[in-house]
Design a protein around this nucleic acid. Sequence first.
DNA 1: ACCTGAACACCGTTCAAGT
DNA 2: ACCTGAACACCGTTCAAGT
Lengths: 214, 214
Amino acid sequence: MQDSSSRPYHHGDLRRVVIETALAMLREERNWQFTLREVARRAGVSHGAPYKHFPDKAALLVELAMIGFDRLRESLGAAQAAAPATLFEELACVSRAYVAFGVDNPALYRLMFSAEEGKAAGLHLDERAMAVFEVVLGLLHRGQAAGSVRERPIEGQAAACWGLVHGMTMLSIEGLLLPAKVGPTPLDSALGALVEGLKNSSGDAERPPAKGSR
Amino acid sequence: MQDSSSRPYHHGDLRRVVIETALAMLREERNWQFTLREVARRAGVSHGAPYKHFPDKAALLVELAMIGFDRLRESLGAAQAAAPATLFEELACVSRAYVAFGVDNPALYRLMFSAEEGKAAGLHLDERAMAVFEVVLGLLHRGQAAGSVRERPIEGQAAACWGLVHGMTMLSIEGLLLPAKVGPTPLDSALGALVEGLKNSSGDAERPPAKGSR
DNA sequence: ACCTGAACACCGTTCAAGT
DNA sequence: ACCTGAACACCGTTCAAGT
């Protein structure tokens, strides 16, 4: 803050600049296949400079993915705060916010789920992903406590929610949910069906699902 | 067939060889980021040769994706043929076959949903994807005719199934369905919840979903 | 008609050298 | 401590030239 103008170029904090430039490029394209050299070009540094702050291009990608998960979780939190009282309405709001995040940030969202590393970068990435998962988990947990969600192992139901919403997001991004084929509001239809399955439908909740359990 | 041994090298039908080499490489790695030059190397031709059969690397990728969709649809068909009588058991079998296909062919599966073209290549790719979607659609259609699937717009419910199964497949491939977090059989749990929502549950099927319809 | 090999413009990554 | 610029090995793509 003090002498930030003393050396306007030769860059005070690359790293932040690199990250923000990359995020901007992800916002512009729908592929996350940007080139490290162009990031450097846009940031106004030589193409070797980023290597003082990231060991790898992969390391930068992991960093971006983690930021993406953080932002997604924030989006979900905001949607949750603004949601109506009913638990299933809340679930619907959060789901819509999730899909909207993916559709608004297709390149970033796809990058988040392209891992291909995770090993060398430790499990920090998976941790961030799990933070998103736990939003759903907490929601269903409250629902179960309140008696509106049926009494089944909760992780399976949370996985169902995540899977459904993630799947709808990816299909939307890929442009595969053509209204002609899939109806005007596929997400709401899908949520409707799933909610019907999660709901503790007035009495017959204790009955085991089927006869051929085995 | 006739004089296939007259020129054993200098390649009778590259194109098929290129495609099969690429498929083999997709089977070995979990990224679809193979290099065209290595395909040529493995096929024993110069790196320029493939360009006589594919205008682009992207064109080869589209071709591979179409093959992938065809194989997926075949897998689903086989699972359907071997499935038990109940419609929801059939749905479960098909779903399990779907996820298994993705988990067994992670690179190919991810390639199939990486489009990024679709424009120049015409809509042939989307057509193949829709053939997969229509397996689900047909299944639910029969279920509705038999009265076991509730009377809602069927495309939305089919979209729900596709979204759920696609999402579970991708999360599985990405290794994000950790048993510790998600339970031992997340797919079955998820299917259970969804099926509960699709089912025409003995009488109360005609009731509209909620009061705040608007 | 099909394939080769040099060529071009580009990458990711490294490393001595500058400040 | 941080950045530059040449260098290396590699790509995708093109194109004259071979058979």
